[in-house]
Design a protein around this nucleic acid. Structure first.
Lengths: 214, 214
DNA sequence: GTCTATACGATGATAGAC
DNA sequence: GTCTATCATCGTATAGAC
């Protein structure tokens, strides 16, 4: 939504060297996974010696945590902007899904770390991240509940549907590859349309038929 | 579809000790990830010494490969059964999604290894697995194409929608937990309904409104 | 803040007795 | 086929010079 490029996106984090390590960490973790990544590799990508990492981060796990927290905060901001915007529930949900799916495509390397390396976090760090994830879940569920209340959506299982919607977007980080895939905006549009169909009440369905589908 | 329990499901694999190692491997890999799992851990869970693993598998990676291959073959069988069954495209797609989503819930520990540890495979093994994955993709895309041809589905972007459908099911392995989640059959039903809505043409939508939704 | 050097444990895998 | 013992390597993290 706001930021453009993957790297250099560590909004004013400490010294510049720490930013380089964060960027190197994201790339390495996304490519090979947290456990398969060595501190030597991270430091090397950042153009430093292995020891330099420990000047800026207490442990390798703390580096992961910092990446994960910033990533989750960005993801939440993307959803929050849509959830708090003006418009019907259908419009807000479409906006949220479009932005969230797109974010996972555009920042698939960050997103991969954010979504698939949770288990590597220490207990306390994990708890902090889970709180952020719950907020994201709550925001999406809220939009769906609004739509149901207004009769715009027909959804029997709201928590299950919210889970499915988030799950669909999150998994973009798994399959998306910058090279072979369609452009991120297209993923966003496709997904917004698919989710719209998933929740729409029968009456409003005809009104929705102006999107990319058909 | 056919098998019931997670363990003891290594249909006639070599000696019994190899089965124990496969089961131990699935559990360990699913819990902690391939790279974070030690051969000592696997062997320990199987009640053997670390060295015993190398009698039955050349390397730790080969153990992963064997798990992944069997898992993928099972997943493909689940989809294939639905794809080749009698019925309309809508019925076959619902059946496929119900079974596939359910499989990922029921066998979420195997599924987690199958879906999230691909990057740890060696080059040749990886290629073999990718071929299996392509078959699964082709089966789902085929059902959707059938539905579009029959006018039962209204789907503008067939490959994208097939990808989304598979992605939705696959991600069940990430979030499903045997303890806290709804039962696997419920996941299957919910997902079959959601996907049905995603693809249905406007005309047939009223006819579909008998599922768990509303 | 960054480097070189290194401690120290753990890891994948093998040798050889039984 | 399984074990005990062990190798060679590599992992995270620290010490101390600059």
């Amino acid at each position: 939504m706001q930021d453009v490029q993957e790297p250099a996106a560590w909004g004013g984090v400490e010294p510049e060297a720490a930013q380089r390590l964060l960027t190197a960490g994201v790339e390495a973790f996304a490519e090979r996974g947290y456990h398969a990544t060595t501190t030597r590799d991270i430091a090397g990508r950042a153009g430093m010696s292995p020891a330099a990492l420990y000047i800026h981060f207490k442990t390798k796990e703390e580096l992961l945590f910092r990446i994960s927290r910033v990533g989750h905060e960005r993801a939440r901001a993307v959803i929050a902007a849509a959830a708090e915007s003006e418009g019907t529930a259908g419009e807000r949900l479409a906006c949220a899904v479009r932005a969230f799916a797109r974010w996972h495509a555009e920042h698939h390397t960050t997103a991969r770390v954010v979504q698939y390396e949770l288990a590597a976090l220490g207990e306390e760090h994990y708890a902090e991240i889970v709180a952020l994830r719950r907020e994201i879940d709550r925001l999406v569920r809220g939009i769906i509940e609004d739509g149901v209340r207004d009769g715009e959506f027909a959804v029997a299982d709201v928590p299950g549907t919210a889970l499915a919607v988030l799950s669909l977007c999150v998994d973009v980080a798994r399959w998306f590859s910058a090279a072979g895939s369609r452009p991120p905006e297209e993923v966003g549009s496709l997904y917004a349309d698919l989710v719209g169909r998933m929740v729409a009440a029968p009456d409003v369905r005809d009104a929705r038929r102006h999107g990319p589908q058909e």
